[in-house]
């Protein structure tokens, strides 16, 4: 898959903003967007969470969740062996049930990309075609505290190694200090660094780290900013700070994506990451996507779960549906 053209993204930003994307212009724009009432947002999310998904819908939902997972390992202790194991799990999530779909992608640190690509072999490719992508976190993940030069090199190296998707972090410090122009420029530059020699481009997921932005108004503004700067996806979290993906935050980001689509016709993806561990929770996200932006968003190039332990819970639920009795952890594989 390819990201949007760099030039059109920048031009569109200029057109939307009515000026250069500097601090002042971005501030006028982002602070002009309607505010968020936290209580109402959380109530709406809670309401979506009470949907009851049964039988055929549940079957479909469980398979779709698997197909939307970025199966992730992001540890300092990651090794080639660990990554190979992760890839094996991504390709054959449930060895006992051949009907189990593959996950969308494996998500690793940049230096692990070659091992992932190697392990995937012929199965490496676009998840919309039933293949498995390689996503790499980049830009001095998770803190983002490095020079732009290093962030770009980090990105370019991962792309060169075969990463299909780059999960970058924004500079939360710059955002909170009101340096919106700097955040914009960095995202745009990373987007540039995603470009391959053949002119295609890795898809760019922009991690907002919502747990550090704290307020919903900040999340909404950072979402708009990231989309304006050319992000193909907006992603909640690194998974490395205590408050990761929540349903209200994801709902809010989906609302931005919906409004961007209404305004420009362009579809942006959303990736909640961190903290989604159960099928029950994941189904709430599917419901939220379906009822906010429509179920056409429930495809790998528009929605992902950043998760590791979620997959096995989904598999347990799948086994329960297939056999009508409850399964146990010894009946799913650790990766």
């Amino acid at each position: 898959m390819t990201g949007t053209s760099l030039i059109t993204a920048r031009e569109r930003a200029l057109a939307v903003l009515g000026g250069e994307p500097d601090d002042a212009t971005l501030r006028r724009y982002l602070h002009g967007i309607a505010g968020v009432d936290a209580v109402g947002l959380e109530q709406r999310a809670a309401g979506l969470g009470t949907r009851s998904i049964k039988t055929t819908s549940k079957q479909w939902a469980l398979d779709r969740i698997i197909q939307l997972i970025d199966l992730t390992t992001l540890e300092g202790a990651d090794t080639p062996g660990k990554v190979r194991s992760l890839v094996a799990k991504a390709l054959v999530p449930d060895p006992a049930d051949g009907t189990t779909p593959r996950v969308a992608a494996v998500c690793v640190y940049g230096d692990m990309v070659p091992y992932a690509v190697d392990a995937l072999g012929a199965a490496h490719g676009d998840p919309d075609d039933g293949l498995v992508s390689v996503a790499a976190v980049a830009t001095a993940f998770p803190s983002g505290r490095a020079s732009l030069e290093i962030k770009l090199a980090d990105t370019a190296e991962a792309v060169a190694a075969g990463a299909d998707e780059i999960d970058m972090v924004i500079d939360r410090g710059a955002f909170l200090a009101g340096r919106y122009g700097l955040v914009f420029d960095q995202i745009a530059a990373v987007k540039e660094a995603c470009r391959r020699a053949d002119g295609t481009s890795a898809s760019l997921k922009v991690i907002l780290e919502t747990g550090e932005l704290v307020t919903y108004d900040n999340v909404r503004r950072a979402s708009w900013l990231s989309i304006l700067a050319g992000g193909d996806f907006i992603k909640t979290s690194t998974g490395k700070v205590p408050s990761a993906a929540t349903l209200p935050v994801t709902l809010l980001m989906l609302e931005v994506v919906r409004d961007w689509h209404l305004a420009t016709g362009q579809r942006i993806g959303v990736k909640p990451a961190g903290g989604i561990r159960t099928s029950k929770d994941a189904i709430k996200y599917l419901v939220t996507v379906a009822e906010t932006v429509g179920e056409e968003w429930l495809v790998p190039h528009l929605f992902r779960f950043g998760a590791s332990s979620l997959l096995n819970d989904v598999l347990l639920q799948r086994q329960k549906l297939a056999t009508s009795h409850y399964s146990g952890p010894d009946y799913v594989t650790i990766d």
Binding site: R51, S52, I53, K54, T55, T56, S57, K58, W60, A61, R64, L286, A290, E291, E295, L298
Partner: peptide, 8 residues
């Protein structure tokens, strides 16, 4: 199927 139909 349409996920949005859910099931009864």
């Amino acid at each position: 199927m349409s996920f949005l139909e859910y099931a009864p």
